[in-house]
Design a binder for these strands. Structure first.
Lengths: 268, 268
DNA sequence: CGACTAGTTGAGGCCAGTCAATGTTGGTGG
DNA sequence: CCACCAACATTGACTGGCCTCAACTAGTCG
């Protein structure tokens, strides 16, 4: 079967899926009250990547009014945990989060590595409980978008409605891209896809696409890629030895993105 | 890390995600005209599992009016292909479909095994192009739900709106469940999860949960589970030898579902 | 400075992949 | 009705990629 000529990106999705939801901070009672009066959508640098993208000013104000802005999470702090009641989507203003699903036996599969401008919490809409957990990878600031209110506003704001649908759909595409590399790719391909995907997402946010700092441990990368931490570590060393990247702990520099792309889909 | 006490199902999701979309039958020009005047939502056996679930009679009629019902697909016929323009979601009235993503090098990862009452086509909303392809696994009948019209109706029918969001969210949960077994489970666990999941879905539709006929080849099962067809075949034989199941080609009988569940999460 | 976490590297084993031969099934046409 | 064929499935022998176990290093924080 030859390469299908379609606009599917070279390297599987993995990409940019925002997911927003209500602010649980830690656990039981959702904390809505933590509102920083100074933070608003109008002044948010991620405004055009977020759910209210493209709204008129008066519409934006209405959305803004029901959002709990400036919810702060410390590194390692959960935004929500599996089984918690779903109230809201969460938009990441700054920092980053991981989302993971857990098997009963304790095995953890990281299903998302989310950075600023993305939205988390979409699992949960259907069954009104979160199916996975979201943990801050560094000090992180999110905005809670109470979902019932979003649904109400979406009925009178077609643009908001359509943005919501897009964001949900993009999350599905992203997950399917992850299934592709988990199911069909070798370890080196998975890591190459991961590194290239991060580069692209940083680029779109105006950061360097060749140099960035990972917010995750080798073990977490392994959890995301379906590999063991030793395998991830060995691959970093191998890629460095081959002159593809330069690694110093969590600082990564892509030296030869073209060669990295060639790894993906190569019979070896 | 111990078992998390939450309402997450024992065996990872994989489950019931409908996805609906516009009728492309084969390829270029979408065929809306194939409407069977005798088929309507009102008389559809999947009415309560579908997007219009819970709508009032007059609302249902409005939804019904814009749906292209009774689109027939022959076995192996594509409903849509990767790269095609997105117009609609598709509800499966009868039969079954697989959805797959394709890597440029031709590798295929099946990302969904959809049966009647489910909706396909959610990838596509975001970028307005289908990211994966949907192929009929047997002679299959679907209804096309033009997405723009659905969005319009959703703004005046909160129940429809919420159903749509649920269905999208459930698809995300399902995909994350698939990531869990692709990333973290051994081959035998994956197949056990797959068989149990199918049983549960048939049960919910009123069919036998212990006896069913697979609509997919060993190779397709492998594509879904991230395994090779030989491995799938060997596992069927092993499970049969251990008295867990009885297999005859594609006909499967679950003899010991409890033992099958025990396989999942067992250190071996 | 000691305890801890994160990361690197090596040796060896095992699970699933690969290659290959054989068996089974279902559809088609004589 | 049955012979034929192609697609699907089974099974075996062997290989290899990733995991496991383990030792060691580097950095961090009290």
């Amino acid at each position: 079967m030859a390469a299908i000529s379609n606009p599917v990106p070279k390297v599987p999705a993995l990409a940019d899926p925002p997911a927003v939801r209500y602010a649980g901070i830690a656990s039981p009672a959702p904390v809505i009250s933590i509102r920083d009066p100074k933070t608003h959508c109008m002044t948010c640098s991620m405004r055009e990547r977020c759910l209210p993208a493209g709204l008129a000013v008066d519409e934006l104000k209405q959305v803004d009014a029901l959002i709990a802005h400036g919810i702060k999470l410390k590194k390692q702090e959960p935004l929500y945990r599996a089984g918690e009641v779903f109230h809201a989507l969460y938009a990441i203003r700054s920092g980053s989060l991981k989302t993971s699903v857990l098997a009963e036996d304790g095995r953890e599969q990281m299903v998302g590595y989310h950075m600023l401008g993305e939205i988390v919490g979409f699992d949960g809409i259907g069954i009104e409980l979160h199916g996975c957990e979201a943990i801050a990878l560094e000090d992180t600031e999110v905005c809670a978008l109470p979902f019932a209110s979003i649904e109400n506003l979406a009925r009178i704001m077609p643009a908001l409605q359509h943005n919501l649908h897009q964001v949900l759909s993009n999350e599905i595409i992203r997950d399917q891209g992850a299934m592709l590399f988990l199911g069909r790719m070798r370890a080196d391909e998975r890591l190459a896809v991961f590194l290239l995907n991060l580069a692209e997402r940083y680029r779109r946010r105006g950061y360097s696409s060749t140099e960035y700092v990972l917010r995750v441990t080798r073990e977490e990368i392994g959890s995301y890629l379906g590999l063991k931490l030793e395998t991830v570590s060995r691959l970093f060393s191998r890629f460095q030895g081959e002159g593809l990247i330069q690694v110093q702990g969590r600082a990564v520099k892509l030296l030869d993105a073209v060669a990295l792309k060639r790894i993906v889909g190569q019979r070896r």
